[in-house]
Amino acid sequence: MSKRFDASFYRRFYMNPRTRVTTRTEMARRAGMVAALVKQLELPVKRILDAGCGLGWLRAPLLQAFPGARYVGLEVSEHLCREHGWVHESLASYRPRGRFDLIICYDVMQYLSDRETVQALANLGRLSRGALYFHAPTREDWRDNADRSTSDGDINLRDAAWYRSRLSRHFEHAGFGIHVRRGVPWGQWELERSVRDG
């Protein structure tokens, strides 16, 4: 896994304007959206875990949104850990001291086996004491939403319901990919919810 995410992978999917799947600007917008929703839910953020942080494009905008917060970048790519100083570990086995107020898990799970994904999802529940931003391409996305000319097709696709059922064991979905750890007090008007948790 670590060798797959070498310099050529990031040149193709992040640096080359013709083949990249996202941009630094799009990631800054995403960080702004996550921060705005977490602030609206009045969830304090002092520790941030960016699980599968890649090039770290979320780091600066998240730290700008949450001054004084501590950011931990977690990454399996040996190349990126050498380049940027990220923690070299898989989300499936990561066991730090303490928990995190905000966890970002963006486009990670599709690269893990079903077994590793189940372990990683359970670990998100252990590591969280607040908010989780979660995104992974699903079978439905691959069929209806993905730009296959730039997207990495060498991935494990699962139904959205598969993810939702496992996330709901530890989290309530607040909308736009934001999940709140069960037991954490937070406020949201009924019609602001994307779906009602049962």
Rank of each mutant, 00 (worst) to 15 (best):
A36W: 06
V195W: 14
G198S: 12
Q119S: 12
F171P: 01
Q64W: 02
I155L: 12
P44T: 13
R12S: 02
R148D: 01
A122S: 14
F5M: 07
V195Q: 12
R143H: 10
H170T: 06
N16H: 11
L41Y: 01
V34E: 03
F66S: 00
G54K: 01
L37Q: 13
V72W: 09
L37D: 07
A92S: 14
E42S: 07
I155T: 14
Y106K: 12
E140Q: 10
V108W: 00
H135T: 01
C105W: 08
H179K: 00
A92V: 08
R158T: 06
G73V: 03
R47I: 03
L127A: 12
A161N: 03
E116F: 06
G187C: 10
D154W: 04
E83L: 14
N156W: 13
T25M: 13
A31S: 10
V184T: 08
H135G: 03
L121P: 03
R99W: 05
P137A: 15
Q40I: 00
A122C: 10
M27Q: 15
R20V: 08
V184W: 09
P61S: 06
A122Y: 02
L74D: 02
E89A: 15
A28R: 14
E116Q: 15
W189F: 11
Y94A: 02
A136V: 14
I155K: 08
G153W: 11
A131N: 03
D152S: 09
L157V: 07
R169W: 05
R139L: 15
G56L: 11
E75S: 04
R12W: 12
S165I: 03
W186D: 11
Q119A: 15
V108F: 03
A122E: 15
E89K: 13
R126S: 10
H170N: 07
R70G: 08
G73W: 00
L121C: 04
R97D: 01
Q110V: 14
W142G: 05
E116Y: 08
F176E: 11
R95T: 12
T138E: 09
M109L: 15
V180G: 07
I155A: 12
E192T: 02
F134N: 07
G85C: 01
D6R: 03
R95K: 13
V195N: 04
P61Q: 04
L91H: 12
R4K: 13
F13N: 07
V108G: 02
D154R: 09
N156A: 07
R143W: 00
V45G: 04
A31Y: 05
A69P: 06
T22W: 11
E116L: 12
P137L: 12
D197L: 07
D144C: 09
Y111I: 05
A36F: 05
H173L: 05
W142L: 10
I178R: 05
A28M: 02
A28D: 08
A69T: 02
G125E: 03
R182H: 05
T22K: 10
D159I: 02
I48N: 12
